[in-house]
């Protein structure tokens, strides 16, 4: 199938706009109907939030299905069964705008850290509120809030980069993810996300579609244990620095390998 001609590109610009419009409309519609109904469906807020999160997961899967059906992307997930257990601390690299859409769709119930700006976004403020997502504006309380969510047996997604990757710039992680893992004494579940050709990345407008249809590979890997970092008996800020360095190294290798494999294999001659 031709996925790189001028007609196809024009189609992908239109269909991307259409998809995002659906996303926005869907978020507003759900934000005023199904989400509040689910959120108020139980007096136990944990039960209610879990219902909203499960519905959120379904709607993200629908959105990915829409983009795939419109010919905007293809994707593959490796090691999905590893995400089935509850109480997982998922850390992922963040190349594209829709990484969180994939991940929420792949996990039945999960908390996310969402940037405070989304509470001022007319489309997204209600959905993120009803789903009980954690705002990054809480500063120092953020680590404690995330550790508490994990201690309750909830799963959590964190993008340690804090924002999308800038292509061509060395990988840079904030230390929050390591701080959370150390505070919660929880191993990290790394997920490597790569997209080729890159699209929807930092500083690139949505309508600047890539030359051909992009392909995502999402790999759920074995846990990264934190025992060595806790055992070292060093002050937590230092342990967080060392764990962060180890994470950056792990992801650097993993991303490079995944991209190298992806380029020849998934695109035999276009």
């Amino acid at each position: 199938m031709n996925d790189s001609g001028p007609l196809n590109r024009a189609w992908r610009v239109f269909a991307t706009g259409f998809s995002f419009m659906c996303f926005g409309l869907g978020a507003v519609l759900m934000g005023f109907t199904l989400w509040p109904v689910l959120r108020l469906s139980s007096l136990d807020s944990r039960v209610a939030v879990a219902r909203v999160q499960r519905a959120m997961s379904v709607s993200m899967r629908v959105f990915v299905w829409l983009m795939k059906s419109l010919g905007l992307l293809t994707y593959e997930v490796r090691g999905l069964d590893r995400l089935a257990a509850r109480g997982q601390f998922v850390v992922a690299n963040h190349p594209t705008l829709i990484d969180v859409v994939f991940l929420v769709g792949l996990m039945p119930e999960v908390d996310c850290i969402v940037k405070q700006a989304l509470w001022r976004n007319v489309f997204l403020r209600w959905p993120v509120s009803w789903a009980g997502y954690i705002s990054n504006a809480t500063g120092a309380g953020l680590v404690a809030a995330c550790a508490a969510a994990l201690a309750e047996g909830r799963s959590l997604i964190v993008f340690p980069e804090g924002t999308r990757t800038r292509p061509g710039v060395p990988l840079n992680f904030q230390r929050g993810a390591a701080q959370i893992a150390l505070a919660a004494a929880r191993d990290l579940r790394p997920v490597t996300i790569t997209c080729d050709p890159i699209t929807l990345h930092k500083g690139n407008a949505w309508y600047r579609v890539p030359p051909r249809r992009p392909h995502w590979v999402i790999t759920v890997a074995d846990p990264i244990p934190i025992a060595d970092f806790l055992r070292a008996g060093e002050p937590q800020p230092l342990a967080a620095r060392h764990l962060t360095q180890a994470l950056v190294q792990w992801f650097d290798v993993s991303i490079t390998q995944q991209l190298d494999k992806m380029r020849p294999e998934t695109r035999p001659g276009g």
């Binding site: 500063g139 120092a140 230390r175 929050g176 002050p235 937590q236 800020p237």
Partner: peptide, 9 residues
């Protein structure tokens, strides 16, 4: 030195 470090400091 980020905000979490400041607390430890």
């Amino acid at each position: 030195i980020d905000s979490i470090d400041t607390i430890d400091l």
